[in-house]
């Protein structure tokens, strides 16, 4: 069973404000899912390379040439709060 502290910590990392009852339910459900996932512990993965990508593509690059991109007006079109060419946000404070 994952701890309440872990749930709080993960919620902060994920920037999710959970209510107390959501936290409790999340703790139960995540614990159940993690318990199910624990069956992977039984598998011998010694010497097995991880797969991050099913297709053997590596370092797909293009030339460093500027090209057309999204116009600034489009990018700002849905700003919940805008100040000129900037997205305005609430103050950022130090933790």
């Amino acid at each position: 069973m994952i701890s309440d502290k872990d749930v709080e910590h993960v919620a902060r990392l994920a920037r999710l404000a959970l209510t107390e009852s959501e936290r409790a339910r999340m703790r139960e459900q995540l614990s159940a899912i993690l318990q199910y996932i624990d069956k992977l512990k039984a598998i011998d993965v010694e010497g097995v390379e991880p797969t991050s990508h099913a297709v053997p593509l590596v370092n797909v690059m293009r030339d460093d040439e500027p090209g057309p991109c999204l116009p600034q007006s489009d990018a700002l079109a849905h700003a919940p709060d805008r100040a000129g060419e900037f997205f305005r946000v609430p103050r950022i404070i130090e933790d």
Binding site: P80, V89, P90, I93
Partner: peptide, 18 residues
């Protein structure tokens, strides 16, 4: 920040996001 829903009345940036 850039698009979609934003909850009003937040204390600070992290509070707004959360």
């Amino acid at each position: 920040v850039k698009y979609g829903l934003r909850t009003p009345g937040a204390r600070d940036l992290i509070d707004m996001m959360s």
